[in-house]
Amino acid sequence: MFPRPIEKSSFFVRSLYKLSLPIALFVWLLPLLAIFLTSIRPASDIATGNVFGVPSSFQLIQNYGEVFAKTDALRYLFNTLLIAVPTMLISVALACLTGYALAVYKFRWALPLFFLFVAGNFVPFQILMLPVVDMSNRLDIINTVPGLVMFHAAFQTGFCTLFMRNFIKALPFELIESARLEGVDEFKIFWHLVLPLVKPAIAALCVLIFTFIWNDFFWATVMLRDDSTLPITVGVRTLNGEFVQQWHLVSAASLLAAVPPVIMFFIMQKHFIAGLTLGATKG
């Protein structure tokens, strides 16, 4: 283990380390803590300059309640779910199929197609923007949630395929080989043999894609104009414009937008990190 385990150090160094941890964390998360404090103080505090001291009263419920009552935050959150969940399901399902095809079959196109998915995954969004908007326009799905979902699902299939293909590639190939020799149909091998084995990968991808889409801002601004379809990221930006000088409400709304991905991360931490660090240990 590197650096040298702290247990082997003197008592003094050990205590110093244990003391430095919370301090470092405090400094690291200071912007977040400060905005949380702002979100629970009354508006009068900010006006009188009490921005960082102890709030004169704790208005957690009032402030957050006001955000829900005064704005469309609830609908924005619901819209985001409406975008994120179908995208997650479609792209992960498609990637199971494509990843399986590219990992298991040794045909001439396997590697070029895999690289196509990988490369497409890294292109700047702006080069896709105008043609995608134009196409959605002609398909009459611009400015609708399904229209955005179609794009997200197609685009995320690239990342999911990269992930899934490498995951399946690492499985023991002999299993599939022997099933084939037994005469099992290709689709049955996929369904009964491979799919149960890739469950961890499916979980990791679901968490990641959900978070990516939840946090998407660019595509929602480009593809959605109607207020009734906007997701929370765009909604919060709009609120920021509407609530000038009402920082306690803006910060409460911002934190609301951050809560679901954070919860998702804490529940599925293992899968989340496994997904993000794919390839950081080998290769």
Binding site: N215, F217, V236, R237, V250, S254, A257, A258, P261, V262
Partner: peptide
């Protein structure tokens, strides 16, 4: 900080 949306980080 990585889990939070960039829009929120920007606002913060």
């Amino acid at each position: 900080p990585f889990v939070i949306s960039q829009v929120v980080v920007g606002l913060i």
